[in-house]
Design a protein around this nucleic acid. Structure first.
Length: 412
DNA sequence: TCTGGGGTCCTAGGACCC
DNA sequence: TCTGGGGTCCTAGGACCC
């Protein structure tokens, strides 16, 4: 056991999407503004601190935010800009230590314990990181420092925005125990309800509760984990690379959809994207899953493990659409099931090339595709796939292009 | 006009194998 | 003919994170 040093940094960008947009729209600076798509069931993806001060927060429905602040500025999202800004920021982090673990598009852990002799105390490093991020991107961030990932993360939450906070090991419990249970990583609305019912309100309450009663209430894994966190213990290391477990696409329709052709068309477009993403990452998927939610937001999923892994979009689609047919039958029959959300996921990824998946589609699949295309074109007056979904680039092999050609060429 | 989309991890039952 | 227990895979569902 090494001596505890507060040498883990958690860097969290401030109001990331909104701040990136403000680089392009400086006239909105200082005003309540949010990033949200302009679709029917949109939620707020990011809000400036001026908007938060007026009560807008988190993934709140846009309609609610607009009711709260009628003149709130709504900026539509631009994912590519956030991806690019994120890459820049992560690159800055790697100038300070190779031990950078991105945990989302706008957050990362940095283990700087090995850089202290070279770059100075963690607090000094954190200031330098903040300055470098601002210099290279014009964006501000907050940095929490602690002896563990969890404490570092809590510290960054506590000093937002544009802040820096060190929690030294000797004062960890003093900082930790008064916090509400929701502050614990892994305590969401459901777990909080269970704990509150038992009279546990603060992290200190959890710490005082015997592990066995936490385990009996929450299960083996969560029970133990929370008890450890409540004592500031978190053995998880900062891991720079993690393997991808799965990838998927899903969409919530503006209005519930019962039309089967529309559902299939959606699965086809999603399968295209998932296939392209698999090929880009050099993966084949062993398992294909679909997910569907009803208007009341209950969700069901069906999955199938394939005889041989694939990254071929049309194979993904063929599996997905079969699963959809099965599911619709179970739920009341095709054309009679209103669908709020539909999605496809590829799971159990293996390295492409380690498998002997089919490269080309069968005549049967072609005919199936043609039928769908015809039906959809008749119904909606346009083809299956919007040009935007035909991603080209390094990930798009001859397979993707064959799909491209097939779809563009239909119907002749 | 009250709830998105990208993920990860855990649990639990049944099948199957040894 | 009867029998236990452990391990692994598959499937479905749920909670959580940002």
């Amino acid at each position: 056991v090494t001596k505890a040093i507060a040498g883990i940094l958690h860097v969290d960008m401030d109001a990331f999407f909104a701040s990136v947009e403000l680089l392009d729209f400086p006239e909105f600076r200082g005003k309540p503004a949010v990033v949200a798509p302009l679709s029917g069931r949109s939620v707020v993806l990011s809000a400036t601190y001026e908007a938060r001060a007026l009560g807008i927060k988190g993934p709140m429905p846009l309609s609610m935010a607009q009711r709260l602040v009628p003149d709130v500025i709504v900026m539509p999202p631009h994912r590519e800009k956030y991806t690019a800004a994120s890459a820049k920021v992560m690159a800055v982090f790697r100038d300070f230590t190779p031990l950078v673990e991105p945990i989302s598009i706008d957050e990362a852990f940095l283990d700087v314990r090995g850089a202290i002799r070279l770059l100075g105390a963690p607090e000094k490093i954190a200031q330098d990181v903040r300055a470098a991020v601002f210099e290279r991107t014009g964006l501000s961030c907050s940095v929490g420092i602690g002896a563990t990932k969890f404490i570092a993360k809590l510290a960054s939450q506590a000093c937002k925005p544009n802040g820096l906070l060190v929690i030294v090991p000797e004062r960890t419990l003093e900082f930790l125990h008064p916090l509400p249970i929701r502050a614990l990583w892994g305590v969401g609305p459901q777990t909080a309800k269970v704990l509150e019912r038992r009279g546990l309100h603060t992290v200190g309450d959890i710490a005082e509760t015997p592990v066995r009663s936490l385990v009996s209430a929450l299960g083996e894994s969560v029970g133990h984990h929370l008890h450890e966190l409540a004592w500031g213990r978190d053995p998880r290391a900062v891991v720079p690379t993690r393997e991808t477990k799965g990838m998927g696409r899903e969409i919530t329709f503006d209005e519930d959809v019962t039309d089967v052709d529309m559902l299939r068309r959606t699965l086809l477009a999603q399968s295209e994207r998932v296939g392209a993403q698999l090929r880009e990452g050099g993966f084949d998927a062993r398992t294909i899953a679909i997910k569907l939610t009803a208007p009341d937001r209950t969700s069901v999923s069906r999955s199938r493990t394939l005889a041989s892994p694939t990254s071929v979009s049309r194979q993904i689609y063929a599996t997905a659409t079969e699963l959809l047919d099965i599911l619709l039958d179970e739920l009341g029959g095709a054309g009679r099931v209103p669908v709020r959300l539909l999605g496809v996921r590829a799971e159990q990824l293996v390295d492409a090339g380690s498998s002997d998946g089919l490269l080309w589609d069968s005549d049967e699949e072609w005919r199936e595709l043609e039928k769908v295309e015809d039906a959809v074109t008749k119904k909606f007056g346009r083809g299956l796939i919007k040009p935007a979904s035909l991603v080209t680039g390094p990930g798009e092999s001859e397979i993707g292009q064959s799909a491209h050609g097939a779809i563009k060429g239909l119907p002749e």
